[in-house]
Amino acid sequence: MRVVDFRSDTVTQPTPAMRAAMAAAPLGDDVFGDDPSVNALQLALAERLGFGATLFMPTGTQSNLCALLAHCQRGDEYIVGQFAHTYRWEGGGAAVLGSIQPQPLNHQPDGSLSLAEVEAHIKPDDVHFARTRLLTLENTIGGKVLPLSYLADASALALKHGLARHLDGARLFNAAVAAGGDPYVAAREITQHFDSVSVCFSKGLGAPVGSVLCGSAAFIHQAKRWRKMLGGGMRQAGLLAAAAHYALDHQVARLADDHVLAKRLAAGLQGLAGVTVEAPQTNIVFIDVAGPKAAGVLDHLKSRGVLATGLYKLRFVTHLDVDAAAVDQTIAAMREYFAG
């Protein structure tokens, strides 16, 4: 029985061509700044997204944390969504390691934060309050794409109040591909509204490891110090950077295939009793299961060779190691379970 893994797009394996790029990568010591493969990746992403500098990191969590630490001081505050990765899924690092207070807000149905609510939660300059310094957004958020008009309005609001703007762009290129046209142009249209952006290469782009933090030269200079303190300085990191660079050059446009497969999966699950399928915008399908059937669905899927997650909703994520046959296998397993 074939096992298909929809738990996350982080489970992807490097393609043979990516492995070849890694094997051929020229190497140096990145702590000294002389790994040519790391430098080439950083320069390429800076040019494509329109930033003055970039910094290669082992993980997206570290990239986001370095951004927050570079933007904020002890006693400062960042405004963030309740389900944003920088708040909910990164171990509370900003608060624990940076003494930075999060101000979480509820998401709107489209994944955005109400800008009226954002403005209402910006603290006045008063000794009783933490100093609001940063607005943090995520795109995509739960697989949903934040509209460019919303990003422009959110950016304008932040600038009006003197706030810095950070984007967790772990799936930035999913949002860019969903916009249609040249994905690099679309990505730059998104990132222009932010002072810093974290881009992950180990999700849909299919690299084994790595994220890149983008910002101004002065900002990245600060972030590099934080990366060192957090244990993120790597030596011959070009082996990993070469994989990310290959993904940047060859595996961005193919994200559209993942979006098509997510829609195929969602369509195939329509009409099941007690099942509500959220129409996917990119590569993530969320499903609500009502009643007693909810308890056993993950075990049934596993028995049929399908891996998924169900932290708060049933979630399926399509990626480069999932094909149409895997989607159809999942639809069949779900229909079998809910027919019983």
Rank of each mutant, 00 (worst) to 15 (best):
residue 4 V to W: 09
residue 8 S to F: 03
residue 8 S to D: 12
residue 10 T to P: 00
residue 13 Q to P: 02
residue 16 P to M: 06
residue 18 M to W: 04
residue 18 M to V: 06
residue 22 M to F: 01
residue 23 A to I: 02
residue 23 A to D: 10
residue 24 A to W: 10
residue 30 D to N: 13
residue 32 F to Y: 06
residue 41 L to D: 04
residue 41 L to H: 06
residue 41 L to E: 04
residue 42 Q to F: 01
residue 48 R to Y: 05
residue 52 G to A: 12
residue 60 G to I: 14
residue 63 S to L: 05
residue 68 L to P: 03
residue 70 A to F: 03
residue 76 D to M: 10
residue 78 Y to L: 07
residue 80 V to N: 13
residue 82 Q to H: 11
residue 82 Q to L: 11
residue 84 A to L: 10
residue 86 T to I: 12
residue 87 Y to H: 15
residue 89 W to I: 08
residue 91 G to E: 08
residue 97 L to I: 13
residue 101 Q to K: 10
residue 105 L to D: 11
residue 116 A to T: 14
residue 117 E to D: 09
residue 121 H to C: 14
residue 124 P to Q: 13
residue 125 D to M: 09
residue 126 D to V: 10
residue 127 V to A: 15
residue 127 V to M: 14
residue 135 L to W: 02
residue 137 L to V: 03
residue 137 L to G: 06
residue 139 N to A: 00
residue 139 N to T: 01
residue 143 G to Y: 02
residue 147 P to D: 06
residue 150 Y to M: 05
residue 154 A to K: 04
residue 156 A to V: 06
residue 165 R to F: 09
residue 165 R to K: 15
residue 165 R to G: 13
residue 168 D to F: 05
residue 173 F to V: 01
residue 177 V to M: 04
residue 179 A to P: 00
residue 181 G to R: 06
residue 184 Y to M: 11
residue 186 A to Q: 07
residue 187 A to M: 04
residue 188 R to W: 06
residue 193 H to T: 04
residue 195 D to H: 13
residue 196 S to Y: 05
residue 198 S to L: 05
residue 212 V to E: 07
residue 214 C to E: 14
residue 214 C to L: 15
residue 215 G to A: 11
residue 222 Q to R: 15
residue 223 A to P: 15
residue 229 M to L: 12
residue 231 G to F: 10
residue 234 M to K: 03
residue 236 Q to M: 08
residue 239 L to R: 09
residue 239 L to V: 13
residue 240 L to N: 08
residue 241 A to T: 00
residue 246 Y to E: 01
residue 248 L to S: 11
residue 249 D to M: 09
residue 250 H to M: 04
residue 250 H to G: 10
residue 254 R to P: 09
residue 254 R to V: 10
residue 257 D to Q: 04
residue 260 V to Q: 10
residue 265 L to V: 08
residue 275 V to H: 00
residue 283 N to C: 04
residue 285 V to T: 02
residue 288 D to L: 03
residue 294 A to G: 05
residue 295 A to E: 09
residue 298 L to Y: 07
residue 299 D to T: 14
residue 301 L to T: 14
residue 302 K to D: 14
residue 304 R to A: 09
residue 305 G to Q: 15
residue 308 A to V: 09
residue 310 G to L: 07
residue 311 L to S: 11
residue 314 L to M: 09
residue 316 F to P: 00
residue 322 V to G: 05
residue 327 V to C: 03
residue 331 I to E: 13
residue 336 E to M: 08
